[in-house]
Design a protein around this nucleic acid. Sequence first.
DNA 1: CTGAGATCCTGGGGGC
DNA 2: TGCCCCCAGGATCTCA
Length: 271
Amino acid sequence: MPELPEVETIARGLANAVTGKTIDAVAISMAKIAVAAPGVDFAAALAGETIGAVGRRGKYVVIALGSGRRLAVHLRMTGRLIVHGAEYPEPYPYTHIVLRFTDGTRLSFADVRQFGRMRLLEAGDPWDADGGLEPLSEGFTSEAFVSMLDGRRTPIKAFLLDQSRIAGVGNIYACEALWEAGIRPSRPSHKISRPARRRLHGAVRSVLQRAIDARGTSVDDYVDAEGLKGGFQNQLAVYGRLGEPCPRCGKPIVRTVIGQRGTWWCRSCQK
DNA sequence: CTGAGATCCTGGGGGC
DNA sequence: TGCCCCCAGGATCTCA
């Protein structure tokens, strides 16, 4: 599942690979994946566009275009954005959209489960993902996070996954940050002590940054823009490690369900 | 405001 | 071995 570190890694790879290129033509083989404003033809509108800055907002890859339009791409669980050289013979199966550049290289969007979307935003469209704070930005201060939890009864794990509060944290890094901070995932947010909130704030930022440094987590089929796997799966403490020993205390990791999501944690050292 | 449940999809795992 | 069933999972929508 691409979360913030994976999306950041993909965006950086794309920035290197396609910035400045001009789109020659666009092929769409599954119409629902390519979303445009009413009355706008996705493929026709993109033809002739140049690629500007490539960045990330929450879990979206955002690609600026010469006309002022933007492409906002969400990969959901199994989406892939991969750049292929001109000689690349055969696309990855489940490829739904291909942007072909004038130099012959291609940017393809593939998605086994068809949940991902590539959305074309018109110039001036105020789209801003879901509005949550960027957890690695300067605005995401310890004080801001501490007060965000006031009066919130929702389990802290569900809070961390709410993209309208904090943008980019998904299931893997929510589990890992809660383990690092020693907080039980089901704990009602407002009941968490202020020192523990500050620990969690630091843990969220730390785990996201370390995962970016490792180029993301490939527990299923995540790959970056070059088709390469990440490395953070080797550093996971709890996610997906049911029954394995907690790296801190040695007790077996358990799995429960919180907010309809699988949750891995240590009963012994997360209170 | 808050949470529960359904929905979208397919590969893969479990059960037999 | 092979087949069928079931389900994870992010965001969104409906309903209570």
